[in-house]
């Protein structure tokens, strides 16, 4: 009915948070890593605002397509209150129930996947930064 409104609300919050974090971020950490076997290249550690951007893109992208699906099923209409579920109290209860179950699960699932991506990327970054001195030594030697 309007389950996508929950991830949409999360997307609004994370977009604002990403902008706020981006403005406060200093110069990103850099490292020299071997790239495609063509010697060392200087790379920047991905700032957190950019990582938060991944979540934003997942949420906004998903919400856009889900909104389209809701239009397809006639659940979003071009007149007030724009959601057929919000037209009378009985339907509104159903809509709120769906938002609190399916909508919240959608948000949680997307966030869990994003947290998984964060864990993988930070472990890769740590591995690169850990091996950096050894690589540099090998290059100099």
């Amino acid at each position: 009915m309007a389950c996508f409104l929950v991830p949409a609300a999360e997307a609004v919050i994370t977009t604002i948070a990403a902008k706020a974090i981006e403005s406060k971020e200093k110069n990103p950490e850099t490292a020299e890593v071997p790239f495609n076997g063509t010697g060392l290249e200087t790379v920047e550690k991905i700032p957190f605002s950019q990582k938060l951007g991944w979540l934003n893109k997942l949420l906004w992208g998903g919400c856009a397509l889900l909104a389209f699906e809701h239009v397809w099923h006639g659940e979003i209409v071009p007149y007030f209150p724009f959601l057929t579920g919000a037209m009378n109290p009985a339907d509104a209860a159903g809509m709120l129930h769906e938002m609190s179950t399916v909508g919240v699960t959608m948000s949680v699932l997307v966030t869990i996947v994003w947290l998984g991506m964060l864990a993988v990327s930070s472990s890769m970054e740590k591995r690169v930064l850990k091996t950096q001195p050894a690589e540099l030594r090998r290059n100099k030697g």
Binding site: C3, F4, P7, W54, K57, L58, L59, W60, G61, G62, C63, A64, L65, L66, V102, T105, M106, V108, L109, V110, V113
Partner: peptide, 14 residues
Amino acid sequence: CWIYWGASLMWLAD
């Protein structure tokens, strides 16, 4: 990729 993966995850929950 972001658009389709985001929608896929949401429809998976559904």
